[in-house]
């Protein structure tokens, strides 16, 4: 038996207490802070759900073509979306798609600057690495409880939980991508008098872009892996269907919803991957 060094019960209680204090005093302001995100999400969701199905499919086809310059890929992507509609999950699929887009967008807005800071400041990197480890390995339920307490049930905590889980690969790959930029090229830009901003936007980010795209790809994949868990705290969509399937032991419902999630995953993966590939081909070094 390991000796008791201090009262863990007290520790637990004090953590509970501080969360309670945070919730009682600041829950309202936290919720107010998140209103803009919620508004964007709701707007996007209504747009996707309100638009005719063929318009959405056409939109996805155009985006795929823009990313890959391949009609075959964009045909395949349209077929995947059509499949989601065909198995009767169009509405849920659009809800999940909206959540994914907002979560991915916010991840990019957070992840890329953090990655840049990590690449620029070694001390910041040393702090961030264990933080990223915690974000990726901590079971999500552990932070879902306080997040729900602070933000209430619904879409916002779902977005937060998704971002916490999904943003680390983007941060890591942005950091890595910038660090892998050829030191000679960077030195050349310094020798011609480029300032920090010119180095960052002219050299480091463009050259790190293939890695950053791989990061965005990973982020979308991980975000999709969170949809079922997110549905437990009130996000509607495909995850909720899976959850209902589990609760009612309806294997068919669960399986179809699961397949729809896979279809969305393939959609996101292929589009971001082909975009990344095209970017790295464009700047391939001999």
């Amino acid at each position: 038996m390991f000796p008791e060094l201090f009262s863990t019960r007290e520790l637990r209680k004090s953590i509970d207490g501080s969360v309670d204090w945070l919730v009682t005093n600041y829950a309202d302001s936290f919720e107010a802070l998140t209103q803009p995100f919620l508004a964007i999400l709701i707007w996007l969701e209504q747009l996707l759900r309100g638009a005719p199905w063929w318009a959405v499919i056409l939109g996805v086809a155009l985006v795929s073509y823009a990313a890959s310059r391949s009609w075959l890929l964009s045909l395949g992507m349209s077929a995947l979306l059509f499949f989601i509609g065909a198995i009767g999950l169009w509405d849920q699929g659009m809800q999940t798609l909206a959540l994914m887009l907002v979560a991915t967008g916010l991840s990019v807005v957070i992840g890329i600057p953090v990655g840049i800071l990590m690449a620029s400041y070694d001390r910041f990197r040393k702090i961030m690495l264990p933080v990223l480890d915690i974000m990726q390995t901590m079971p999500s339920f552990v932070y879902l409880i306080p997040v729900v307490m602070l933000f209430g049930l619904g879409k916002v905590p779902a977005i937060f939980a998704t971002i916490i889980y999904a943003v680390p690969p983007l941060i890591r790959l942005t950091d890595l991508g910038i660090r892998l930029v050829d030191a000679d090229v960077l030195e050349a830009s310094r020798a011609f008098g480029a300032n920090r901003r010119q180095q960052l936007f002219g050299i480091q980010l463009p050259l790190a872009l293939p890695n950053i795209m791989a990061g965005i790809n990973q982020t979308t994949m991980m975000a999709l892996a969170m949809v079922v868990i997110a549905s437990m705290i009130g996000a509607r969509g495909l995850g909720q269907e899976v959850l209902i399937g589990i609760n009612r032991l309806e294997v068919g419902r669960g399986l179809l919803a699961g397949l729809a999630i896979v279809a969305l995953a393939i959609l996101f993966d292929r589009i971001t991957q082909s975009l990344g590939k095209r970017m790295s081909v464009a700047q391939q070094d001999s």
Binding site: D182, D184, V185, E187, A188, S189, R190, A191, F192, G193, A194, N195, G202, I203, P206, L207, A282, Q283, Q284, D285
Partner: peptide
Amino acid sequence: ELEDFRRHKISMVFQRFGLLPH
């Protein structure tokens, strides 16, 4: 001023070229 000096007064050619691949 150092940046300015590098931009106008002095430039450099590198052993491994240091060209911008993109």
